[in-house]
Amino acid sequence: MLSKAIIKLVSSLEQKKYRLENNLFVAEGNKIAEEIIKTNFPIKFLIATSEWLSKNSLNKNIEIYEVEESEIKKISFQKTPQSVIAVCNIIENKLDISEIEQNLTLALDNVQDPGNVGTIIRIADWFGIKNILASYSTADVYNPKVIQATMGAFARMKVHYILLSELLRKLKNNNNLIIYGTTLNGKNIYEQKLESKGIIVMGSEGNGISKPVLEILSEQLLIPNFSNNLQKSESLNVATATAIVCSEFRRQQK
Results as ranks from 00 to 15, higher is better:
H160R: 05
I162Y: 01
L177V: 04
K172V: 00
G181Q: 04
S165H: 11
T182F: 07
L168T: 03
G181T: 03
K197L: 08
V201I: 07
N175H: 15
N185A: 08
N188F: 06
M157N: 11
I147K: 06
K187F: 07
K145V: 08
Q148G: 07
I179P: 01
N185V: 09
V146E: 05
N175A: 10
N173Y: 14
K193P: 01
I179H: 03
I147Y: 08
G152N: 07
Y180R: 05
Q148E: 13
V146S: 06
V201C: 03
T182Q: 09
P144M: 13
L171E: 03
Y161M: 08
I179G: 03
Y190M: 10
G181A: 07
K170S: 13
Q148W: 09
G186C: 09
K145T: 10
A153Q: 03
A149V: 09
P144Q: 13
V159D: 05
L171Q: 00
K187Q: 14
L164A: 04
A155K: 03
G181S: 08
M202F: 14
N185T: 14
N174D: 15
Q192S: 10
A149T: 10
L168S: 00
A153W: 02
L168H: 03
M202I: 15
N173M: 11
M151D: 11
L177W: 01
G181M: 06
N143D: 15
A155C: 07
L164H: 02
V146T: 11
K158R: 10
Y180W: 09
G198Y: 00
I178W: 00
L163I: 10
I199Y: 01
Q148L: 11
V146D: 04
N173C: 08
S196A: 14
N143G: 10
F154K: 00
N176I: 04
I179K: 02
K158C: 07
M157W: 05
L163Y: 12
I199F: 01
G186I: 09
L163H: 13
K187W: 00
R169C: 06
V159M: 10
M157E: 15
M202Y: 07
E166P: 01
P144I: 12
I199M: 01
L163R: 11
K193D: 15
A149H: 08
L184T: 13
